[in-house]
C-alpha cells in the first residue's frame, strides 16, 4: 500500500457532495502543500487536475489472468468484474445483477469460484484468476464446455460462462455426487431461459466420465 493521503473527503455514511477537485485544491493550498508535489498543486489550481487526481486515486494491481500476468492501475472501488470486462476486454464474464444475486459473473480466484461483481479488484492483487476464456486448452474445449454443448446447457448463453465456471468448481469441490447435490450446488447461478436440467445432465456426464477437470 503506497503511503498516500486519502483523496476522498470524509462524509460519514452518506455520500459526500464535495469533489476531489475541491479537496485537492483545498489541501494543496492550505495544509498539505508540503506533502503534494508542486505540479499537482499547480495543476489543481489551474483546473487541470483531472488526470493527476485520477492517477493518485489508483492503486497498482498485479494478477495472473488465465495464466497471463497482468499489471494494472485501478481505482479501489473497481470490481474484478468491471476490470475484466471494461479494462481487459475479457467480456466472457457477465454482469447480470452486480450484487451477488445471480452468479453470471462467476470466476475462479486461486481456484475457488467467487462472484467477481462483489470482489474488489485490489483484493485480487497477487492472485490467480481464471475466467471462461481461460478454460479451454487452445482450440480444445474443456470437457465441461463440451458437455454443455452436447446437452444444450443453455439457450441465450448469457449465464453460461458463470454456469460453466461454477460447474467445473462443483466437480472439483466434490459436490457432484448426485443429481440433488448438483442442483443445490449449482443454485448460485440463475438461468432465466431454464436450462437447469440440461446443465445437471452435462455435469453428471463429465463427473461420470472421470476426465480431469
Amino acid at each position: 500500500m503506497p503511503d498516500k493521503k486519502p483523496v476522498t473527503p470524509t462524509g460519514g455514511e452518506e455520500p459526500s457532495n464535495a469533489t476531489r477537485r475541491d479537496f485537492i485544491k483545498q489541501t494543496s493550498l492550505l495544509t498539505a502543500v508540503a506533502l503534494t508535489p508542486g505540479t499537482v498543486v499547480e495543476a489543481a489550481t489551474n483546473n487541470m487536475d483531472e488526470q493527476i487526481a485520477a492517477a493518485l486515486e489508483k492503486l497498482p494491481l498485479k494478477m495472473e489472468v488465465n495464466g497471463t500476468p497482468r499489471s494494472l492501475s485501478v481505482e479501489p472501488r473497481s470490481t474484478l468484474l468491471d476490470i475484466l470486462r471494461e479494462q481487459l476486454d475479457l467480456t466472457g464474464t457477465k454482469k447480470g445483477c452486480d450484487h451477488g444475486q445471480c452468479g453470471a459473473c462467476t470466476v475462479h480466484v486461486n481456484g475457488r469460484r467467487v462472484n467477481s461483481c462483489l470482489t474488489l479488484g485490489v483484493m485480487v492483487n497477487g492472485k490467480k484468476v481464471t475466467t471462461i476464456e481461460g478454460l479451454a486448452n487452445g482450440e480444445e474445449l474443456h470437457p465441461m464446455q463440451e458437455a454443455f454443448l452436447k446437452h444444450d446447457g443453455f439457450q441465450c448463453g448469457y449465464c453460461t460462462p458463470g454456469q460453466i465456471m461454477s460447474a467445473v468448481a462443483c466437480i472439483r469441490e466434490g459436490h457432484a455426487n448426485s443429481e440433488a447435490e448438483i442442483r443445490e450446488y449449482m443454485s448460485g447461478n440463475i438461468c432465466r431461459c431454464g436450462a437447469y436440467p440440461n446443465i445437471v445432465n452435462a455435469i453428471q456426464e463429465v463427473k461420470a466420465g472421470g476426465q480431469a477437470v
Binding site: 474445449l141 464446455q145 444444450d152 443453455f154 448463453g157 452435462a202
Partner: peptide, 19 residues
C-alpha cells in the same frame, strides 16, 4: 434427451465466452 440432435451452431461461441 438433452443429448439428441445437432448441437447449437453458435454453441461454441457461447461456451467459450467468445459470444
Amino acid at each position: 434427451t438433452s443429448a439428441d440432435g445437432l448441437s447449437r451452431v453458435d454453441g461454441r461461441a457461447k461456451v467459450t465466452g467468445a459470444a
